[in-house]
Write a protein that binds this DNA or RNA. Structure first.
Length: 300
DNA sequence: GCGTCCAGGTCTACC
DNA sequence: GGTAGACCTGGACGC
């Protein structure tokens, strides 16, 4: 089954798919040759549908069901809405692009259609993945996320493992997460977050639509054990809030490199530079340090 | 092949 | 508020 969905003006699929490392993590499958993305989407009915999305023409995206199955009209609408959310095609970046055009250094951003950061189907999934990026190599992050999908994820109609639901992680054990998933010391953090999500004492899916002031939302995200300033700042970017930089060692190094500065200055120095961009500062920061991905190609 | 060192964020305890 | 040490893993390096 094939159909298309409308994308906003200046939308660039490849820019979104290569906006950061998420497209290289399961359950996403990035097809560099065809510049498309495979993703098993879990519908509200519980049905897991393997979908492939690629660029089409006239601000449209081509959607193909990998399993050869069909969708009802309602399911089709749900798939469209989920894809728009994952690809951030439902986000208004007009004001951001206006600000970017004011600075010669950043005029490439609207021209390139950059700035839409790929996110997962759920904020729960984004948060777990973000915890898995902390204090380790990218190879280990990939291994942890792959293990979570393979060992705890539901299989979609073409056999691809989806990201596990909170219940699946909550029903596992610290020992399993530590040794089998290879989450190490992060195991109790993941378990606690999953169990709190199942109990409803924390509601990550509410974060995406919350009207809470960003500072309060940041504090709530930070209250998850294992989520520090780096992880919370980047989780907030995936919630459409760009007030925090989410600095890690790679970004720190990159900042000093592109600004021809000597390393060793405090993060406050970096934060001060981006204050001029107001509520978009986190997005300007991220696009600054990843600019070459858009020009020279996505690593990996 | 084995042992050692280091990098990578966050937490906790302490000053 | 700032700092030190622990957490865990994988890669680099020396032997």
């Amino acid at each position: 089954m094939k159909f298309s969905i409308q994308a906003p003006e200046h939308f660039d699929l490849w820019s979104t798919l290569t906006s950061h490392g998420w497209s290289m993590l399961p359950p996403f499958t990035l097809d560099r040759e065809h510049r498309s993305l495979g993703i098993p989407l879990t519908l509200s009915s519980g049905r897991s549908v393997p979908v492939n999305v690629s660029s089409s023409s006239n601000h449209h995206l081509g959607v193909r069901l990998d399993s050869g199955a069909t969708l009802s009209a309602r399911e089709k609408a749900e798939v469209s809405a989920l894809l728009k959310s994952v690809l951030r095609a439902d986000e208004d970046l007009g004001e951001f692009y206006l600000e970017a055009r004011r600075h010669p250094r950043y005029r490439w951003i609207p021209k390139r259609g950059a700035g839409r950061l790929l996110r997962s189907q759920s904020a729960f999934e984004d948060t777990v993945k973000m915890i898995c990026t902390t204090n380790c190599s990218w190879a280990l992050t990939t291994a942890m996320v792959r293990n979570l999908c393979d060992r705890l994820g539901e299989r979609s109609e073409n056999g691809v493992a989806a990201f596990p639901a909170p219940e699946a992680i909550a029903d596992s054990s610290e020992k399993f997460l530590r040794k089998e998933i290879r989450a190490g010391y992060r195991a109790p953090y993941l378990l606690e977050f999953a169990r709190a999500s199942v109990r409803g004492t924390i509601e990550p899916e509410q974060w995406r639509t919350s009207n809470m002031p960003t500072e309060e939302l940041f504090a709530e995200v930070r209250s998850v054990k294992g989520v520090g300033p780096y992880a919370a700042g980047n989780i907030l970017k995936l919630l459409g809030r760009y007030d925090y930089l989410g600095i890690d060692s790679w970004c720190r190094k990159k900042f000093f490199e592109i600004h021809n500065e000597i390393r060793g200055k405090k993060d406050r120095h970096i934060e001060k530079y981006y204050e001029q961009f107001g509520r978009w500062r986190g997005l300007f920061f991220w696009l600054d340090v990843t600019k070459e991905w858009h020009a020279d190609g996505f690593p990996g």
